[in-house]
Design a protein around this nucleic acid. Structure first.
Lengths: 330, 330
DNA sequence: CTGAAAGCGCTTACAG
DNA sequence: CTGAAAGCGCTTACAG
């Protein structure tokens, strides 16, 4: 069952291919009677335009590449950011009539594949979701000249992005802990090649410094297991600590487990604040206080930035606000 | 900076377009010296074939649609299944040289869009991830005649799938609870339009029936909040229950919260078993016993089924085994 | 407002 | 093994 072409629609309707094309593309310069007869033929034949032929001549693809760039050591496969952001991005892109081509960039090979594909003109633009701080992809994509934006800031300053005010988010968390009377406040950082990890650490440091307190730092990588390990190390190094700020909720969840295993009560002995306010934060024991980052909104704003760019709009970065959600862990 | 075409490569190399085409497509019937000169020209010019032109003549697309069909009432945006399965599917498809076109089917409009797109011959095949039991999409896709497979069984028997042995998974959970000496074992079901929800319920029922016990059933919809509510209801209806089998881990997490709020100790007063063994299961308080479903493996198997189908292979459904992972909650 | 014709950049029989 | 030519299914000036 071969698909009908413009030509057979034209024959059926008794008009030229040009007219059918105009009707199908909704041009206004078509006589009503022609439109009607063409519409009928289209319906009867079940005509769907051949995208390849159309793209070949128009040079538009109506597709956008969504590339998720993972760190070499891999990520948590169930990372809530992936689901939330990819879903929100797809929904918004589809609403704008764009096809979503999802690409994972995890290895040098797959990175090369992404570059090829993008340089090959298969898409109108690129939305980057970089879970990784040191990769050459953002700069490489920017070099292709194709409209490219990033969810969160990358290591390539020329790529416009929608980010968070991470430092003030962290400050929110630390000030809250101080107000609760906590005196020895530790931090568990994200991977430090990531811009948002560094900003969250800076916000923590600056806030403590302002009150004359010292920082207590353990390194994590945004996974639950790294949060659990960092917490263990913090407890060893400074058994008297009475609060911890984890740079994301997944690590806070890991820290909570370590604290429970160590017999520390939360929040009585140690208060815990996370970052992101993922859905799971409301279901931990005790429920987690967290700095909310509006991931879905941020994702939508990133799409709008990209669509604007494709239309020749401005490339101004956008910063989303965040707020503290207080629950039982502090 | 216009991209170079076959024609300019041919001119540069001093050969015909046909020869360039053959070299680029790796045909073996090309003299080595021609191959070399063409390769050089390709490299120097940075030639990348125009996919639209190629598709137009070959009628292959080297793309696969991954359609995620959500229920009308929406889903948990951070559903770990989405991240795990979409990631695994993409990775596997990319390894096979297929482009991944991600499509969300959430409304009638987006469903129509998916059908159009698929019928429009933009892809070589379709991988369906249906989080929803009553939708017309599986049957509609099957009707297009395009190779279509589903992650988990759908309501359209003609769509081949890779599923789980849900009934025996549930039986594993219930037998384990019986062995632990539990006598009043409740179940929290998933949405009953979903095949796997019904199978898990059946497995629970059959196992209890075999030991002469009665079922205690509460309805959920696979979200945390529905698990929390179902647990509240179960506690009201049967305060003496001493175990609950939740049909997925998200609902088990919700149930855990309700039990804590109600002052029931887990597992001393009430034992809890989940299903799926998502990463979060190891981080609940107490850590959750769960029936592991090998989501990533299942995703990969589904991709292989699809690739086979595209090559004209068999359409036999595949059933993956599952096993019980015992932790602290039982 | 409508139609005939050229052209987008490839691949693929076909002849040589 | 190589090249000239036709053709894939559209859109888009251009003339009328």
């Amino acid at each position: 069952m071969k698909r009908p072409t413009l030509e057979v629609v034209a024959a059926r309707a008794g008009v030229s291919k040009s007219s059918v094309s105009r009707v199908v593309n909704g041009e206004s310069t078509v006589a009503p009677e022609i439109r009607d007869v063409v519409m009928r033929a289209v319906r009867e034949l079940g005509y769907v335009p051949n995208a390849a032929a159309r793209n070949l001549v128009t040079r538009r693809t109506d597709a956008v590449a969504v590339v998720v760039s993972d760190p070499p050591q891999g990520v948590v496969s169930d990372d809530p950011l992936f689901a939330t952001v990819v879903r929100a991005v797809s929904r918004e892109l589809e609403a704008a009539g764009k096809q979503v081509v999802l690409m994972l960039a995890e290895s040098d090979r797959s990175r090369a594949r992404v570059e090829q594909y993008v340089a090959g003109g298969h898409v109108d633009g690129v939305m980057l979701i970089a879970l990784h701080g040191t990769d050459p992809l953002p700069a490489a994509l920017a070099r292709t000249g194709l409209p490219t934006v990033s969810f969160n800031r990358t290591n390539a300053p020329e790529v416009p992005y929608v980010g968070l005010d991470n430092a003030s988010g962290a400050a929110l968390a630390v000030r809250h802990l101080l107000e609760r009377g906590r005196r020895r406040i530790a931090v568990i950082t994200g991977p430090l090649e990531l811009y948002e990890s560094r900003e969250r650490l800076d916000g923590y440091r600056a806030t403590l410094r302002d009150t004359g307190r010292r920082s207590i730092v353990a390194l994590g990588d945004f996974t639950r297991v790294s949060g659990a390990e960092a917490m263990r190390q913090l407890l060893d190094d400074d058994p008297a600590l009475d609060a911890v700020f984890a740079s994301n909720d997944l690590m806070a969840i890991g820290a909570l487990r370590t604290l429970r295993e160590a017999g520390r009560r939360v929040p009585e002995d140690v208060a815990v604040v996370g970052f992101d306010d993922i859905e799971a934060a409301a279901y931990t024991t005790p429920a987690l206080t967290s700095v909310r980052s509006p991931m879905a909104d941020q994702a939508r704003a990133t799409v709008r930035l990209l669509l604007g760019l494709i239309e020749g709009g401005p490339r101004e970065p956008v910063i989303m606000p965040n707020e503290l959600v207080v629950r039982e862990s502090t």
